[in-house]
């Protein structure tokens, strides 16, 4: 593959995939440590009905309606989970499982029934993402990175995911201490005057934002692999929170880059003509990383 082809067909999917993996893996550390991994799962699923609803209402797949729709769906999900837990006398895990599968199923039905032929929103795309399609057709080579006209043709998903990743990183940097303290010892954090409820909610909101923005890249199902696998693997590498978060970022990037590359070029090595799903391969690589960390990680005990 020459430079021009790489910039046009691989650079933006690689960037979007990497940023999506990063945006999910960073808050994922706290979800895993708080034993709320299921929350990431729930969020990634309820994003779908939110996005479909936003599309049905506005008729476009632009950024803000999608974000608002997903946020609304996330809030509905949280309220429903709490209501079922309280009135149904069901344990939180089960309430969460019921709500997010039901909402996800409703999202799939709505997606099938709605006329989305004119835009790029279909069931397969929603479930598995469409990383390969996020290409930069205006690019003619590396020099396009300096060409304003070509830059204007960058896929809008790139800006969205960049913004969200930046927000996640900034939030993490600023609120690092409260996040760490309240995740380790909520009671103690309360006596310090930390708003532990708001912190917990902030993690969920950051995760929801990441899930929405990563939706294009890896779809709503494989997002969960990005939330869980890199942090879980990173925990097996170190006994320090800061180092763990750094490892999770490294693993997320490896999964994204290696997954995309293997999906595009891997089958050819085995004599197959067809590339495989990039999102599927990204999720698979993330799983393999976790398996390796579980077998060989230095902090397994």
């Amino acid at each position: 593959m020459n430079g021009a082809d790489f910039v046009a067909f691989s650079l933006t999917p690689l960037l979007i995939g990497s940023l999506a993996a990063l945006a999910c893996a960073l808050p994922g550390n706290f979800l895993v440590l708080r034993r709320q991994a299921l929350v990431g799962d729930a969020i990634s699923h309820v994003v779908l009905p939110g996005i479909v609803l936003a599309f049905l209402v506005t008729g476009t797949i632009s950024t803000w309606p999608m974000l608002l729709g997903s946020a609304a769906a996330a809030i509905v999900a949280v309220v429903l989970i709490e209501a079922i837990r309280r009135f149904g006398r069901i344990e939180p895990g089960a309430a969460m499982g019921v709500v997010f599968t039901a909402m996800f199923a409703a999202g799939v039905l709505a997606l099938e029934q709605s006329d989305t032929s004119g835009v790029h929103l279909d069931v397969e795309h929603a479930l598995f993402g469409n990383l390969e399609s996020l290409i930069w057709l205006d690019a003619t080579g590396w020099e396009s990175l300096l060409d304003p006209a070509a830059l204007a043709g960058l896929p809008p998903e790139l800006f969205r995911i960049s913004l969200v990743t930046l927000a996640v990183v900034a939030g993490l940097a600023v609120f690092w201490r409260p996040l760490a303290i309240s995740t380790f010892d909520e009671g103690f954090a309360k006596t310090l005057g930390l708003p532990v409820r708001a912190i917990g909610l902030g993690i969920v909101i950051a995760s929801a934002l990441a899930a929405v923005a990563a939706f294009d890249a890896v779809g709503s199902i494989i997002v969960i692999a990005m939330f869980i696998c890199p942090p879980a693997a990173a925990r097996l590498m170190t006994n320090r929170l800061g180092v763990q978060v750094a490892w999770s970022a490294v693993f997320a990037l490896i999964a994204a880059v290696l997954g995309f590359t293997l999906a595009g070029s891997g089958p050819a090595w085995f004599g197959s003509e067809n590339a495989v799903s990039a999102a599927g391969m990204v999720g698979t690589v993330a799983g393999v990383i976790l398996a390796c960390a579980a077998l060989f990680g230095p902090a397994r005990n």
């Binding site: 201490r177 103690f188 929170l241």
Partner: peptide
């Protein structure tokens, strides 16, 4: 939890250190 002894004790300095 991924923390060393010093990391936990340093939590006691939070109100002094702030964000």
């Amino acid at each position: 939890f991924p923390a060393r002894v010093v990391d936990v004790v340093a939590q006691g300095l939070y109100r002094r250190l702030g964000l």
